[in-house]
């Protein structure tokens, strides 16, 4: 008897894990080619949902994200390039929808700021090292 219960419990657990894997917001879509499917996947992961601002289109279940996923799908299947799709989104929802911001004068700081700080930090580090060495030498 207890064996039967164990069996039941295990199969329940198994079913739960099955559903857990499929929890990502996704519709059943059929693509004309494997390439289109990978393009779709990378686009919906790279585009940000305009309603729920810390999620991408792939993860969000808001109605606008569903609509935008559908739009991305339709545009891919009708032969539009990735750039055309991204331009379409930016024209409507602004630069905000890009998780990877484009290069422009407004985003230079964003792109190159970290490297500039790294160089500054290195310079400071070297300066400290050099002055310390000098101090050691003079004290000798």
């Amino acid at each position: 008897m207890s064996h039967l219960y164990k069996c039941l419990a295990f199969s329940c657990l198994f079913l739960i894990t099955l559903f857990a894997v499929n929890s990502m917001a996704e519709e059943l879509l059929t693509f004309r080619s494997e390439l289109n499917q990978t393009r779709y996947q990378s686009l919906v992961e790279e585009l940000r949902c305009p309603k729920c601002q810390n999620q991408n289109l792939a993860d969000s279940n808001s109605s606008i994200a569903i609509d935008l996923r559908k739009q991305v799908y339709l545009m891919i299947e009708s032969g539009k390039s990735d750039q055309e799709i991204v331009d379409y989104m930016v024209a409507r929802y602004g630069e905000f929808v890009l998780y990877r911001p484009s290069y422009s004068s407004a985003t230079y700081l964003l792109w190159y700021g970290p490297f500039a700080f790294l160089v500054l930090g290195l310079m400071a580090f070297i300066m400290v090292l050099v002055t310390n060495k000098k101090k050691v030498r003079t004290s000798l």
């Binding site: 305009p50 309603k51 808001s62 109605s63 606008i64 609509d67 935008l68 739009q71 409507r92 929802y93 602004g94």
Partner: peptide, 12 residues
């Protein structure tokens, strides 16, 4: 269908 909404950049 919400197509004009998309063109206007409506989120809800």
């Amino acid at each position: 269908t919400g197509v004009f909404g998309l063109d206007m950049g409506v989120t809800g």
